[in-house]
Simulated scan of single mutants.
Amino acid sequence: MQRIPVEDYAARIAALVEPVLRRPSETVALDHALDRVLAADVRTPIDLPPFRNSQMDGYAVRAADLADAPAELAVAGAVPAGVAAPSLPAGVAMKVMTGAPLPDGADAVVPVEAVEQTDGRVRFAASVPLGAYVREAGSDLPSGGLLLSAGVLLQARHLGALAAAGVRDVPVRERIRVAVISTGRELVEPGESLADGQIPDANGVALAAAVRADGAQLVAVERVGDDPRALQDAVARVREAGAELVVTSGGISMGDYEPVRALLETVGGTVGTVEMQPGGPQAHGAVDGMPVVAFPGNPVSAQISFALFLSPALREAAALPPRVRDTARLSAPISVPPGRRRFLRARRTDEGVEPVGGVGSHLAAALAAADVLLDIPATVGDLPAGARVDTVAL
């Protein structure tokens, strides 16, 4: 059987899910907008700041009254934050707090630490320039100015700016709605007692977490045995739950009990082998128009396959940065049989990257100890310490 190159298979998965990436928009409340992608430009409906205010605790003055400083002025009251701006007569000062509206007629603020205060009067040692410690209305952004551009992944600083502008409802892209289905009669809920031949369902947990980490909305997690009809029923259920993309694990190899393979072959899907290890068996197709991306059942194979083939599309749709691809020096030698492209688990060290575990696709603990994959070409076997290798962040 001809093996599909990794890049070619990645392109096939990208094409399969591309229609799902074209996201409509929805409006959400500001307190639900964190980590959502802004669907349209937002312009501030008000000046930022909305009125002239004091940058410091100090005294609002008319700069002309201090032109011949040193000077002493009477204090005509105080202005706290949150009140309407009073008027400042000529020849007097008015105490103002940080953020308080500047009195009408005032054109400068002198910080409180720069003056001498006596009963009802204040002495200024020097003149003050026009506009000193004054925040003009709209000096941050005038009304109608572009506050945030479409495509921004909204973080706390963005929400703060929207709130400052008085924006309550935010247009965001809908999240891709994804369901995860793990297959295999041997699987049980993690934490349950294990009968002979049973194992905890690691893929259901790991793939569901990966979906959410890459910015998609997880709408359902199902587990089925080895019956293609049960799998078809599960696909129908997750569709009813709102899924528009299904990720499966297991059931695509050459054995006697391969429900995903059986289902995809009936709908004209592709079941084949990619030129890589771990993660060689791969499959994909559409069930009643809904994309299904099928990964191998071995936990390491499933998670590496997700990172290489589906994660790029989900992260792009969610405006998340792509997984970092880089090069690094091996801090220890490796030896692998040439002939197939390998993705080996490794962790970063002060000396470079250090391989973790072997090539087996069952080594989940080794994957947990890793933070990068080493991308080793099919033509390479032994590599000494110090050799440079391509890496993919986990």
Rank of each mutant, 00 (worst) to 15 (best):
L154F: 03
E275T: 01
L38D: 01
S127L: 02
V324M: 12
L187Y: 05
A33T: 04
A132N: 14
L314M: 05
V324N: 15
E186L: 11
Q155H: 08
I181H: 03
R261G: 01
S301R: 01
P5R: 12
F124W: 11
A81D: 13
A332H: 14
L314R: 13
G357L: 04
G166I: 04
S139M: 05
M1K: 02
T379M: 02
P49E: 01
A74P: 05
A243D: 14
L162F: 04
L16W: 04
A74E: 15
L66M: 02
P377E: 13
V246N: 12
D31Y: 06
P190N: 00
V170L: 00
A385N: 13
L66A: 01
A81V: 06
A286K: 13
K95M: 13
R177P: 13
A202C: 04
G352K: 08
P86I: 10
D326H: 15
G272L: 03
P321W: 03
E186K: 08
T27L: 00
L30I: 02
R237Q: 10
A294K: 07
A283R: 11
E222Y: 05
L187C: 09
A164R: 03
T118C: 05
A365G: 06
D140G: 08
A234N: 09
S54Q: 09
G151I: 15
G272Y: 03
T118R: 14
A81E: 14
P89T: 10
L363G: 07
G358C: 11
P291L: 04
A313D: 11
G358T: 13
A161D: 11
A137N: 07
L73Y: 15
G269E: 04
A100R: 02
D233W: 09
D8H: 13
D8F: 10
R185Y: 09
P142A: 14
L66K: 00
I181P: 05
D169P: 09
S249M: 06
L207I: 05
D119R: 15
A262E: 10
A74V: 15
P259R: 00
L88C: 15
V17W: 00
L153T: 13
T349Q: 12
G166W: 02
A165S: 10
A40W: 07
